[in-house]
Design a protein around this nucleic acid. Structure first.
Lengths: 288, 288
DNA sequence: ACCTACTAATGCGAAAACAGCATTATTTAT
DNA sequence: ATAAATAATGCTGTTTTCGCATTAGTAGGT
């Protein structure tokens, strides 16, 4: 039984037509016909009911279609990951990160990476939801930066650093470090508080701790956009201090008591030495 | 890439010796050598480091060994299940059951089965722990009888019937339906109350409801054994009424208020029509 | 230093499997 | 009746695979 045969089967199970399928998978109709026969023969399972005119999945065929689709995907994912391990320092690693480190930590880190592992290719993605856990365990990502610690028996998660969160206001705003009164009357530009991200829940708790029901006029998850709107005087916001490095014009940062952490997480028992090296470098960068 | 090649790889990854492996998998050493080469070639991943004397897994090889072992198992399980669907009424289905239905419901049910589906082969197992859920979803069993309802989005679970639980005492014992005083002084022969099975937790709650701290002298999960010990006057027990059908000598059953249910569970979206038929028959038997 | 035992790779010829063309056989539509 | 559609099959040349015998590199013993 060949993986290829299974893939042929899956296409045929969708198409239910030998000629079209043969064309799609770049073999002749006769060859396809025989491959499927060989598969049925070897498994001793009838996969399709066919007369001279129609092709139809049997129940066993439907079952295999469903489960093989899933397994073949997992299979391919595993092979991709093995290839990464094999390629090592000349391979690719995938990193997910929260937007808030895009201005300070991440650029520094990427610079160090490119100095130390010049042939390594990096895939960066900013996930919209916070399911780093699944992404790591599925091998869809190799290293996850996140604002909260990932608690999972198969994942290691270390704190890299903490930083204050800040009120972000336009220059010469009436609010400053010594005078934070009347916050409840300000208009806020922040990410949707109903979201499940760690930062959103931190914001919720900060507002409730300070007895504020914020008037949110604009919702945005993109820090750059938020700073821009603040600079235009459309409202004020709350962001981690890192954003200050973006050096947005006409914006001031007022540090608050509250702190936010950055964690780095990876699969326990990681076999890819390059990934281990990358983690080490990230921790070096954070220490400085 | 052949499933067979992967299986060769997995054996070699354990043995780390081409000759021994070749013998184990019934091909020649040269053939094995070339199969592994072909696999490495196709994947473009080096699996083993070998000199003329030693064979050793690479990191990528270790990774694939771990993950392929798991996937290949799942693969085989899926094929077995597909075969069951294909074979239908002449195939095999797997049933798990609690010991307590072995005397009344199960024999009746099996009789009906053998009348209606004479060619069907049945695999019966009595699981020691209560993880019917996993067994069903892994395709290790097709139908699970259990004392509690299985709550899982991918499993259907229906109540078949309820029956009282009973005090089981030797004939002519001082206890009877009208006089249940002094239970706290009796010696009990019951299954370990620390266990996580549904019946054990039901017993725990019954004892605590009746303010009894039972003196347990013997623990046994096997109902037949328990009745035997009771008949010899070694103590009394509590069992579902079903056990009365075992017609153990010198034993009497005293019905209590408490009831216990029997559920039948199967995978939602089951494609095997024979399994569906079997479930139907089970429900018929229970109704009577 | 030399011999021996061990073990993975490889050359080779026979056998098996596979690919694709052309054809067949059956069904459906006109 | 005829034509179009479509899965299976006969056939032939090509590729792959198999196992035997051999080679080549390594470790250990003397």
């Amino acid at each position: 039984m060949t993986i290829q045969q299974i893939k042929y089967f899956l296409v045929l199970a969708k198409e239910l037509h030998f000629w079209n399928t043969a064309e799609k998978v770049f073999i002749s109709q006769s060859s396809l016909s025989r491959q499927i026969q060989a598969l049925e023969d070897e498994l001793q399972i009838q996969l399709f009911e066919r007369d001279k005119r129609n092709v139809k999945l049997t129940n066993a065929g439907k079952f295999l279609q469903e489960h093989w689709t899933e397994k073949i995907n997992e299979f391919d994912q595993i092979i991709r990951q093995a290839k990464k391990i094999d390629e090592g320092k000349a391979g690719t690693i995938s990193i997910t990160y929260p937007g808030s480190i895009a201005y300070e930590f991440l650029p520094k880190f990427l610079e160090v990476l490119s100095n130390n592992l010049p042939d390594l290719k990096i895939e960066l993605t900013e996930p919209t939801d916070d399911n780093h856990e699944k992404l790591l365990l599925n091998f869809q990502t190799d290293i996850a930066f996140s604002r909260d610690k990932i608690k999972n028996a198969n994942i290691d998660s270390h704190k890299l650093y903490s930083e204050p969160i800040c009120l972000v206001v336009p220059k010469n705003h009436r609010l400053n470090k010594k005078n934070l009164t009347g916050l409840e009357n300000e208009k806020f530009i922040i990410s949707g508080l109903h979201q499940t991200t760690f930062f959103a829940s931190l914001l919720r708790s900060w507002f409730s701790k300070n007895g504020i029901e914020p008037k949110t006029i604009i919702e945005s998850d993109f820090g750059g956009m938020i700073m821009n709107l603040v600079s235009k005087g459309l409202g004020i916001s709350i962001l981690p201090l890192s954003f200050k490095s973006a050096q947005a014009e006409n914006v001031e940062f007022i540090e608050l008591e509250e702190k936010i952490d950055l964690y780095i997480s990876w699969r326990k028992k990681e076999l890819n030495n390059t990934i281990k090296k990358v983690i080490e470098l990230a921790e070096n960068v954070a220490e400085k």
